[in-house]
Each structure stands twice: as structure tokens, then as C-alpha cells.
């Protein structure tokens, strides 16, 4: 075996390298960097149908990520999905009549919530509710609607 000091040095370097690798995995590979750095405020939105939206999906305005989906619940009295959105505090100027829609990134990609600012003077605050919402597009519904219309067109002829 090598002299004691060399051994200790190499072992120290080995442990440091292992911890550094873990650090790289955490910072570079995982979603740690997108975790709630900074304060957020919570607004809710009600949707008829949220499609494949998941907790931690993105919330964007004009394509810029401003927050993430914090919670998804179902209101069994109004038969609606209640989605809690955590928006970063530095984006605190959204008008009260901002609308929310669920879109899909790409044809088969993930679903996300897109906000569209309105024109009101008052702004969204912690606990506010977004009134104007647009549900996710469900492909089957769309296809059946299309087929139904085609069929009724055929009847007229």
C-alpha cells in the first residue's frame, strides 16, 4: 500500500468526486433548478376538463414560464376541476380578468396552462380566482364532433 498521506489524499478525492457527481445529478440533470426559487402566490382556476394536466406542469404567459401547477382538485358540487397555480411573485401585474387555457406543447407533448392577460385595472392577488377559463382539448370529443357533423351533412343530401 502507498504511504498513508497519499492514501488519505486519494480517498478524500474519491469521496469528493462522488459527492460532486451527486451534486451534478441534482443540479444539472434534475428539475431542482426549476424548483420554487423565490416567493410565489397562489391563484385558482376552474376548468370543465383539464385533460392530462399534472401537478408541476408549467404555467406560461406568452410562452414565458411564470409559475407551475401546484394542486389539482375536483369540486364535486360544481362538477369542475379546481387547479391551483403558483405564480412567481415578480410577475404580480396580471389583470383580474386574465384568462387561463390548457394547451398542449406540440402534438403529443405535455399539457400546460397558458394565461392571457385581460384589460382590468385590478390585479390578481394571492387567493384570487381566474374566472375565464378554457378547457383542454380532448381529441376524441373533437373527432366525434367532426364525424357527427359529417354524418348530418350526408343526411341533408
Amino acid at each position: 500500500m502507498k504511504s498513508n498521506k497519499t492514501t488519505e489524499l486519494m480517498v478524500g478525492m474519491f469521496i469528493a468526486a462522488g459527492l460532486a457527481a451527486l451534486f451534478v445529478l441534482a443540479m444539472q440533470v434534475s428539475n431542482l433548478s426549476s424548483f420554487g426559487n423565490g416567493d410565489t402566490y397562489r391563484v385558482t382556476a376552474r376548468f370543465e376538463n383539464i385533460g392530462g394536466l399534472k401537478v408541476r406542469s408549467a404555467v406560461t404567459v406568452g410562452g414565458v414560464r411564470v409559475g407551475r401547477v401546484a394542486s389539482i382538485d375536483y369540486d364535486s358540487e360544481r362538477f369542475q376541476a379546481v387547479v391551483g397555480l403558483d405564480l412567481e411573485s415578480k410577475y404580480d401585474r396580471f389583470p383580474e380578468d386574465t384568462s387561463a387555457a390548457i394547451y398542449t406543447a406540440g402534438l403529443l407533448g405535455e399539457q400546460y396552462v397558458a394565461l392571457e392577460p385581460g384589460g382590468s385595472e385590478d390585479v390578481l392577488k394571492d387567493g384570487s380566482q381566474i374566472e375565464l377559463t378554457q378547457s383542454a382539448l380532448v381529441l376524441e370529443k373533437l373527432i366525434s364532433k367532426f364525424l357527427f357533423e359529417k354524418a348530418s351533412e350526408g343526411d341533408k343530401k
Binding site: 469521496i15 468526486a17 459527492l19 457527481a21 451527486l22 445529478l25
Partner: peptide, 16 residues
Amino acid sequence: FISMPLLAAIFSAVGI
């Protein structure tokens, strides 16, 4: 027991 997780972390990082 100590080495194995460190080695696995190094393996993963290098592999990526």
C-alpha cells in the same frame, strides 16, 4: 457500503 453509492453517482454522471 460508503463506496458503492459514490461510485454509482460517478457512473451516472459520467454516463450522462
